[in-house]
């Protein structure tokens, strides 16, 4: 049933066209701080694009532009050929962002966290909502946690709940902000598997911000590396591994050198 150009719903047979993301000459300053400089990038519909880069290089800011939480200083972002800053875009294209810290609603149970979106947007009856929520929890093996509160969950579970909450939105575009940071290696691998599985089964366009090399090199269709506000490289993982650019090699395989430690010549 899956065709290459449409997203399947996790909850029904419904299919919607997968969306692409076009970033055209995007620059962003916060006052004097230049965070993004003239970034141009196209994420194809149905691909997994992994964006890597050092901390503070502007990865989260880039994601916020795609969901329309930040306004570009220059350039524009198109999601499914609609301007991301236009509030109507969010109504026409279903996008979900899994925030780095989860951003679960602390005052609501896991069940209510997942049910909030369909309830508030009146997308289904309470029975229909329950069905969706339980299905999303089941996909992420969280059935037993419906009545727990976020404060009662471990880090890995919070991430999975956050992913489940995004899934309930039946997204055409799914974004993850550092989904494996702060997790142990096994849980990181689990999350990588979840991301790849969701993309395979439902064919959602997926953008992952991460500096998890295993995740990037194993599940990405293409990897972009953001450095100093610019894209230093965009390439499939295999090409990236073979890259001869010393900055990229150093970022992907940093050598721990105690004779000539890096922190001694960091610019301040």
């Amino acid at each position: 049933m899956t065709s290459d150009s449409s997203t399947r719903s996790p909850f029904s047979e419904a299919q919607t066209p997968a969306v692409s993301v076009n970033i055209e000459g995007l620059s962003k300053n916060f006052g004097d701080l230049v965070v993004l400089r003239d970034i141009t990038l196209k994420v194809e519909s149905g691909e997994i694009f992994v964006l890597m880069g050092p901390s503070g290089s502007g990865k989260s800011v880039l994601l916020k532009h795609i969901v329309g939480l930040e306004q570009p200083t220059a350039g524009r972002v198109l999601v499914d050929n609609r301007d991301a800053t236009d509030p109507a875009t969010r109504e026409q294209v279903r996008m979900a962002l899994v925030f780095q810290a989860g951003a679960l609603f602390n005052s609501l149970s896991v069940y209510d966290n997942l049910a909030l979106y369909p309830r508030e947007n009146r997308l289904a009856s309470e029975d229909g909502i329950q069905e969706k929520v339980m299905r999303a929890l089941q996909i992420l093996s969280l059935e037993g946690k419906a009545q727990k509160f976020p404060s009662e969950l471990s880090g890995g579970m919070k991430k999975r709940v956050a992913i489940a909450r995004a899934l309930v939105m039946e997204p055409q575009l799914m974004m993850y902000d550092e989904p494996t940071s702060e997790l142990d290696p096994i849980m990181s691998a689990t999350i990588s598997e979840i991301i790849a599985t969701l993309k395979d089964e439902y064919h959602v366009t997926t953008i992952v911000v991460s500096h998890d090399r295993d995740l990037a090199l194993n599940i990405a269709d293409r990897v972009g590396i953001l450095m100093g506000g610019k894209l230093a490289a965009i390439a499939p993982p295999a090409e990236l591994r073979a890259s001869t650019d010393p900055r990229i090699q150093d970022f992907l395989n940093p050598r721990i050198d105690l004779k000539n430690p890096r922190f001694k010549h960091l610019e301040t």
Partner: peptide, 19 residues
Amino acid sequence: ELASMKVYQEIDALETMNI
């Protein structure tokens, strides 16, 4: 309550959910 929701990005999450 609202400041902590803002700082912990719950408000951003609401915006992305069209709420």
